[in-house]
Design a protein around this nucleic acid. Structure first.
Lengths: 196, 196
DNA sequence: ACAATAAATGAACGAACATTCATTTATATT
DNA sequence: AATATAAATGAATGTTCGTTCATTTATTGT
């Protein structure tokens, strides 16, 4: 039998992500993708059940890579500060090294496909993070707080800076390293506030 | 001559925003909007030049309301802490009171229309904020920093919490008031970090 | 009552859309 | 070399899209 052309398959994925980032999810169409990847429209339906399936599969695949990148060198049993700093840098690295793929994931996260792409993956990821937080609490490194407050303090400023960066706004100095320090010192503030 | 039915015009705007928030910018179409608003498709082209014009006008209008809401009771000559806290609460109030419209603006901000909708308005708004920061610096209430770092510290955690809230995630306790205090105390951290 | 005028309409246009299908092409096994 | 099999295709399907236009409707000033 004839084997699937993996180069072609990869090209389709690449062009799809490119087009979505360039023209938005509404500017994306199967016929345009086929033309851009130099493939028949019908071929896309060999790889994917339909348009939605294509988007979900691509999103799931890239989201998996993101989570893997975030958890690189990370272990839930780490000391809190070390774990936080590693994740912080992993996140910054991923976004700065793969801005197009990051923007693709961002678009999916703000679309109706959000649930189908991220729900299962996020559950697993949040369990790991939950274990990490639980350890930190047990070790009295942090006081109990909700995941949401934790997130808003730990990573929101970073992502905001990254978005400025992605939008082509020049960030003088080294705001990322700077922001990491702010993140860490802010936790001290939160600890104090939660005690009061 | 016959006058324009203002009730109909308002209904069109309302349904358009509803549909965009519900189905995303790619799920939005002129024919569906016409049907949902009980209007002929041709009528939409009396109100708006074309689909893009409709989105830009609606976006511009709502963005104007948002900026007005943010600047309510605010004056650039205020003391820094007072000004910050007023803006902080204004932002929280707008999002919590008008989640649908806020989500609509969010979608436009992540779309190719971004520039045409927000550029001119943001320029004006950023001038006001620039004056506020300049005053605070002149009064030695804050040290100089870029707009981006300022934003990431001042409002990023708030918006993150708001997004959790909009997604229907319950926020135990009163994380918004809590987050305001964190914001303010974090500025103390930033001041210290910038001095070092 | 009538003329003037702009709002509002339903039907229609070609273009682009997602998807399908009969056919052809390439390869692994016999 | 012949066969089997799945990949790959180009053309075509029906649907929905944005937009237009000839016509009708409602309201003002005469």
């Amino acid at each position: 039998m004839r084997y699937r052309d993996e180069h072609k398959e990869l090209l389709v994925k690449e062009k799809a992500i490119e087009m979505i980032v360039r023209e938005g999810l509404d500017g994306f169409s199967m016929q345009k993708l086929a033309k851009e990847a130099g493939v028949s429209p019908a071929t896309l339906y060999i790889y994917y059940k339909d348009k939605e399936d294509l988007l979900i599969q691509l999103g799931y695949e890239e989201a998996t890579r993101l989570i893997k990148a975030i958890l690189k060198n990370f272990d839930p049993s780490m000391r809190f500060e070390e774990g936080m700093r590693i994740q912080w840098r992993n996140r910054a690295d991923y976004w700065l090294e793969s801005p197009v793929k990051a923007s693709f994931l961002e678009q999916l996260k703000h679309s109706p496909l959000r649930g189908q792409v991220f729900e299962a993956l996020d559950m697993e990821f949040l369990e790991t993070m939950g274990a990490f937080m639980h350890n930190a609490i047990a070790n009295k490194e942090i006081l109990p707080m909700t995941r949401e407050v934790f997130w808003s303090v730990a990573y929101a400023p970073l992502y905001t800076l990254i978005h400025f960066h992605t939008d082509g706004i020049s960030l003088a100095g080294n705001p990322f390293r700077f922001s990491e320090e702010i993140m860490w010192e802010t936790f001290a503030v939160v600890m104090k506030a939660l005690k009061a």
